[in-house]
Simulated assay, not measured.
Amino acid sequence: MSTGADLRELDESALTKKIAEQRRELFGLRFSHATGELENTAALRSAKRELARALTVARERGITVPTNQKS
């Protein structure tokens, strides 16, 4: 679990990598939850908060973080 202070110490490229990693983790947890394999449902909440922290730090810095959504 990373705190806001830990995330603020990261440089721009490390922060974007962290955000991508958190998105992949959240996707995996959502998939596991949908298939009934997820036993620790609190992990979903934790992953969402971690991603939100990282995105908040990126927004504070004015970093544009690409989304993985196709338009």
Results as ranks from 00 to 15, higher is better:
Leu10Asn: 04
Ala54Gly: 08
Glu25Phe: 08
Gly62Tyr: 11
Glu12Ala: 04
Ser71Pro: 13
Ser46Val: 02
Ala47His: 07
Ser13Ala: 13
Thr56Ala: 15
Glu25Asn: 11
Arg61Ser: 04
Leu26Glu: 02
Thr35Trp: 08
Lys18Pro: 05
Asn68Ser: 11
Arg49Phe: 05
Thr56Phe: 11
Leu15His: 06
Asn68His: 15
Val57Ile: 03
Gly28Asn: 14
Arg30Pro: 00
Glu21Val: 13
Lys48Leu: 00
Gly36Phe: 14
Lys17Pro: 08
Asn68Arg: 15
Arg45Lys: 15
Arg30Ser: 00
Ala34Gly: 07
Gly36Asn: 12
Ala34Arg: 14
Glu39Leu: 11
Glu9Asp: 07
Ser71Asn: 09
Glu21Ile: 09
Gly4Phe: 15
His33Asn: 09
Arg45Ile: 04
Val65Ile: 12
Glu21His: 11
Glu25Tyr: 06
Gln69His: 11
Ala52Glu: 02
Ser13Leu: 15
Thr35Ala: 01
Glu60Gln: 10
Leu10Trp: 14
Gln22Cys: 08
Ala58Asp: 06
Asn40Met: 13
Leu15Phe: 09
Val57Asp: 01
Gly4Asn: 08
Ala52Leu: 07
Ile19Glu: 06
Arg61Asp: 01
Leu26Gln: 04
Thr35Glu: 13
Gln22His: 12
Ala43Val: 00
Glu50Ser: 11
Thr64Glu: 13
Leu26Tyr: 03
Arg45Cys: 02
Gly28Asp: 13
Glu9Thr: 05
Ala54Arg: 15
Leu38Tyr: 09
Ile63Val: 09
Gln69Val: 14
Arg61Gln: 04
Leu55Pro: 01
Ala42Leu: 12
Leu15Trp: 10
Leu26Gly: 01
Leu51Pro: 01
Asn68Phe: 13
Ala14Tyr: 06
Ser71Phe: 09
Thr67Asn: 11
Leu29Thr: 03
